[in-house]
């Protein structure tokens, strides 16, 4: 199981980073979303893995519980990363609508003068 989680985190990280390094805004946003999955699972896993041990206190038995703290932190992280994705989407959209393209690399000043800013 540990190997499964570790490799899943690795796969998502690799995919996320590859997409983050693309040149257009949309794949970068997708890459960041993928990367945030990876980071969230990574943080969650730092509480170590446990099956059938949710941190819901049981009245009846001396149950074992998994570590609740990373879960609480990751829960807010998921919501916040949504908020950040939304801001990024909005910025990307704004940049696209203002400039007519969604390249993330800024043009050099000398290129920008005769660039397609007016296109």
């Amino acid at each position: 199981m540990e190997l499964v989680i570790a490799s899943a985190v690795g796969i998502m990280t690799a995919g996320g980073i590859y997409l983050v390094l693309r040149l257009r805004a949309f794949p970068v946003i997708l890459g960041l979303a993928l990367l945030s999955y990876a980071v969230n699972v990574f943080l969650f896993a730092s509480g170590r893995l446990a099956v059938d041990a949710p941190p819901i206190l049981s009245k009846y038995a001396d149950a074992t519980y998994t570590d609740p703290l990373p879960q609480a932190l990751v829960l807010t992280a998921i919501v916040i990363s949504f908020g950040m994705t939304a801001v990024l989407v909005m910025i990307a959209l704004g940049a696209f609508l203002e400039n007519g393209h969604d390249r993330i690399d800024m043009e050099r000043e000398d290129d920008a003068e005769n660039g397609d800013a007016s296109a």
């Binding site: 989680i5 690795g10 796969i11 990280t13 170590r48 893995l49 570590d67």
Partner: peptide, 29 residues
């Protein structure tokens, strides 16, 4: 770059998943 980073993160995750660490969660529970 992506594959190297992915392998690194996977190894890191695998390494700490197999090892115990003292946590503060007992207090919360």
């Amino acid at each position: 770059i992506a594959v190297t980073a992915g392998v690194g993160v996977a190894m890191l995750t695998f390494a700490f998943l197999l090892r115990d660490v003292s946590v503060i969660s007992d207090f919360h529970l």
